[in-house]
Design a binder for these strands. Sequence first.
DNA 1: GTGAAAGCGCTAACAA
DNA 2: TTGTTAGCGCTTTCAC
Lengths: 373, 373
Amino acid sequence: MPSIIHHNHQILKVTRKLIAETAQVSTSTVGMILSGRGQHYNVKTRERVLQVAADLGYQPSINARAFRLKCSLLLGVLVNAVNTHHAAELLRGVQSVIAATDYSPLVFFARSQEDQEQCLARCLDRRVDGLLINCVVGAAAAELDGVIHQLASQAAPVVEFFGHLLPGVPKVNVDNRQTAELCTRHLIAQGHRRIALFTHGRYEHQVLHFDAWEQSQGYRDALQAAGLQPIIIAGDMDFSRLHEPGFLEVEFLRLGAEGLATLLALPQPPTAVLCYTDQTAVGLNRACRLKGLQVPAELSIIGNGGTALSAIINPPLTTTRPPAFEIGRTAAANLLLAIRGQAPADASIAETLIERQSTAAPQGDRQPAQPAR
Amino acid sequence: MPSIIHHNHQILKVTRKLIAETAQVSTSTVGMILSGRGQHYNVKTRERVLQVAADLGYQPSINARAFRLKCSLLLGVLVNAVNTHHAAELLRGVQSVIAATDYSPLVFFARSQEDQEQCLARCLDRRVDGLLINCVVGAAAAELDGVIHQLASQAAPVVEFFGHLLPGVPKVNVDNRQTAELCTRHLIAQGHRRIALFTHGRYEHQVLHFDAWEQSQGYRDALQAAGLQPIIIAGDMDFSRLHEPGFLEVEFLRLGAEGLATLLALPQPPTAVLCYTDQTAVGLNRACRLKGLQVPAELSIIGNGGTALSAIINPPLTTTRPPAFEIGRTAAANLLLAIRGQAPADASIAETLIERQSTAAPQGDRQPAQPAR
DNA sequence: GTGAAAGCGCTAACAA
DNA sequence: TTGTTAGCGCTTTCAC
């Protein structure tokens, strides 16, 4: 409690001044002792001050502290609201790191570029000491640049997470390459030799669809290491209605559902498919059911995203869960590093495999002696 | 930019002091004019000060302001991380209201009671000027009470949203009663006479499952107004594993899937079902497909929650979308009211109906002359 | 119409 | 080992 009733019935704020008066020392003595840097004081003085502070229920004023220190002790966290399934875990990760510090998170969700600018303006005039940002896709880097530089001019470092839009800014991202490699290896270990990747037609565009590109690299690497050939099914996607709620889900579902025909038309159809998202996997799974194709017996499917959806489809989908908590942790830790003047390295963290019932050893048609090369 | 390079090559912070010196007035004059309460100053002085402030790119220090005003200009927002589908919209709603003020949101996600206590402690030592809280279910009200009182002692009001756990605290909630009434009326208007409610076995417990109880009330009211009889299918649910990720989804799905048998065993099975959640509806829908029962021709289904799932099942599910943005708006607005000393009223806001393909007029068996009474 | 001055709670350089 | 002092940027009262 920050205030007590004094014996003369006046309400007194419990500040260092009051502690000083009560303990019969100066405020600077109190300050030094409470800050933990008072080793050189008399033990009795130290104990007395600490005791009085405890008795009075002293709570330091972070605000005053920040004011004096010419900082805000606030960390801006700007989250892209287009895909927020993991926002809570992410922020819990951030909290877990900064809970041990004097910083608190100033959180904003932006859905559009306009939103984003407002939120950034807010961060700026709150003078955040650092910024964690997951940019709205399509944001003109040029416009962000102004803000980033302004932050830099007030010595507030920036860390970008879940994205690659800010040149020269340290990043923390999902390691899609490693994730895909993990999944592909898992399928190979189960005995699959013909493993397809279901992605969208723009996966080659490294900047625009960096994650799809990364995924394809991991997939290729794992196959190559096993002496297998890639089979990439790339459906055309229309991202123009990206802002419409639920659009992505439906579009990815369509991608999966329509891809089955392409896949079955191959001379040697694959026995397993790695999908770009859970929705794609669900679409594919649904198409299989309509075709009478057994999952996983005739076709194994792995999703990506660890969505709630994946757990409740039939069969439950083997998928990967993004390390949202870890990303938040790492991003916050790196931001703190940067605030302390050390340049943090980029980090990327693989998703974890959740093995469920949509994957199994291929049924009856193992062809170890005859890979599709 | 908060600092400029002076002609003598020194870096100067742009504060009111600098503006005062540049414009040849006193800092108090600058302060009064910038705060908008400087009507009584000479017009030329006013313009000069404003001009200089603009030229220098002055940005007030919210921190210093807060310090002087003995407040933090921070609003705590504590969100239950168990069900966060709507957290982003909720927070955007909060932002939309407080963007016009000097307040900024200090956001925390809590998954457990322990989390929650830490976050609240954080809010306390940041001396938030108000708190928006969506309590973790199962939190002992007694423990929260301490915090609430502590906040009260520093004149920081509290508004609870998405919950009814804090006695005496103003609330903003989803109006489940009205939502259910809306849905039921919609079905009645389509010609349904036998409409069931799929809920769980504890819907009667007004405190524990307030929303289920509310929903049942709205459902009953709408039926009663139309002279129809309620048909309540209440499955048993085991909430003991509530904390496990994805548990609720699967459990609600089971509820729906297993309920179909009960429903079909009735002497006169309903032609429409109102479900407690989207997952329940999906489970029911799936059971229907397995039984060969046509949706919506033979059975109309309405979900609840407007989840991503609802859009991608087959047929796309008619459901209701929680007014998360509005809840955030209202909660923030009411908190601001409370901060200004006015006691806000409780608010509840109905969900909006999203009509898709799982509902239609009952096929062939309208029985206007023979309701099931 | 305008300015002088005090002070919010804390920190830190310097003095004793 | 401890105290004095100045000041962060802003608001506001009171005097001129």
